[in-house]
Design a protein around this nucleic acid. Sequence first.
DNA 1: GAAATAGTTAACCAAATGGTTATAGGAAAG
DNA 2: CTTTCCTATAACCATTTGGTTAACTATTTC
Lengths: 112, 112
Amino acid sequence: MVIGKSQLDSVFGALSDPIRRGILERLSAGETKVGALAAPYDVSQPAISKHLRVLEKAGLIQRTRRGREHHIKVDPRPIEEARSWIATYVRFWHHQFEAVDIYLKEQEKTQK
Amino acid sequence: MVIGKSQLDSVFGALSDPIRRGILERLSAGETKVGALAAPYDVSQPAISKHLRVLEKAGLIQRTRRGREHHIKVDPRPIEEARSWIATYVRFWHHQFEAVDIYLKEQEKTQK
DNA sequence: GAAATAGTTAACCAAATGGTTATAGGAAAG
DNA sequence: CTTTCCTATAACCATTTGGTTAACTATTTC
């Protein structure tokens, strides 16, 4: 039994590619046709098609067919999970990181 | 010329694996030996070693050798970039998403 | 110093990823 | 109806990823 990727896996995975992040950035200006999304990039059209599928599987975009055009819009909801994962741990990490820092500074002082 | 991955690429890439996220979660409790990090997972120890290298390349962990033990601590700084990328766009996305929602609700009303 | 311990590195493998070209499907325009 | 346009799918390829086992390095312990 091959167990599927978690939501976090696919969301972070989708965000790890610069073209896909670029597409999402572009989408913050609003719903956009696939052609317009592809235009800035120096890769073939099928390559963009694949990136869109990755974003779609991660739930980050939604597609509406209007005639022969596909209109893409962002769905920010799955990213909230990612955001909150980071937020939860950043607090602990930062605290822990500073704690070590303080410890090291104490050491310095003591050794004068 | 093979151009390297951006910081965001490798940070998001590192976060896209459940074992690596698990390791980071564990590290929020403080500096930890490699063995302890590996213990919960049902993969070989070299597999963990590789995951640590991925996290290290992304700048997310720091390693200190104390005798034969490697002590790992989290470095939360590179994640700030990721966090801020998300934060920047989530605002636009959310706004855009709600705008469409409002638009659709207006349509519904109008068509009654 | 020999044995055990903590961890990495090397060599290998299968599957996933990101790209390509060629082909196909369906809507719009001529 | 034929052509053009917009996009997806198929088939293929090279590279990367995530895992394995085996061997190695360095430190501690007996």
